[in-house]
Amino acid sequence: MNKLLLGRYLPGDSWLHKLDPRTKLMASFYYIAIIFLANNWQSYLMMFVATMIMVAASKIRLGFFMRGVRPMLWLILFTVALQVFFTKGGAVYWSWGWLAITQYGLTNGAFIFMRFVLIIFVSTLLTLTTPPLALADAVESLLHPLRKIGVPVTELALVLQIALRFVPTLMDQTTKIMNAQRARGVDFGSGNLFQQMKAVVPLLIPLFVDSFGIAEDLATAMDARGYQGGDGRTKYRILQYHPRDVYAGGWMVILTLGLVFLRA
C-alpha cells in the first residue's frame, strides 16, 4: 500500500535520476503522444529499442517495469481482444458469425499491445526515477504561468507537498490504530462485506480525529513561523536545467524524426 501511494520511487544516481523532473515529466507526455505516430513494424521496433535503452539507462531491473504492467494486464488483453476480433481487412484466418480474426486484426492487436506496454514502461520509468516531491515541484513550475489567470499554483503546490510529507505519518498512525483495535478483538479483512465495512469504523474515526489534530497543530505551527499565503514568499528549493536536459530534448527530437521516416 505504501509503495503504491508513494509512486514507487527507487533512489539511484543514474543519468535519468539526475534529469530535471520537468524534463522527465514533459518528455514522458511527449513520448506518449508520439507513440501514436507509430503504425508499422519498423516504427514500433524503433520505439521498443529506444524504450529499452532508456530502461537500461535508469539502471533499474526490468522486473520493476513488469510489475507496472501486471495490474493493467486485463485491461490490455481486453483492448487487444477487441482489436483482434473487430478489425476487418486482409486474410481471414478464422470466423464465427460476425466475429473474425483477420490479418489486420492480428497486427493491430499486436501494435496496441506494444503501445500499452511502452506507455506503461515510460510512465513507470518516470515514477521510479523521480521522487514524488520533485514531481510536485515540476508540476508547480510548469503550471506557474497559470498564476496570471488567478490559479493559486503555489498554494496548491504547498498543499500537495504537505500531503506527500504526511503520507508516511498517517500510514504509521493507521498501523498503530489497526493494531490497537485488533488487540480489542477486531478482525480486519475477514467475514462478509458488511462485517468488513463495520470493522473499518473503529479505524476510520480515530484516523479522522487524529488527522484533524495534525491539521490544527500544523496550521498553528505554520502561523507561528510567519506563513501568510503565497504572495511575497521566496523559494528554497528551485529547479535548474542542465546540459543533460538539452540532450534529453535532443533524444526526443531524434525519436520523432525516426518515427516520421519509418512510419507508413
Binding site: K176, A183, P206
Partner: peptide, 14 residues
Amino acid sequence: KVGMVFQFAENQLF
C-alpha cells in the same frame, strides 16, 4: 487473555 495498552492509547477511542 492479553490486553494491550498501546502508547497514546487515547487514539483508539471512536
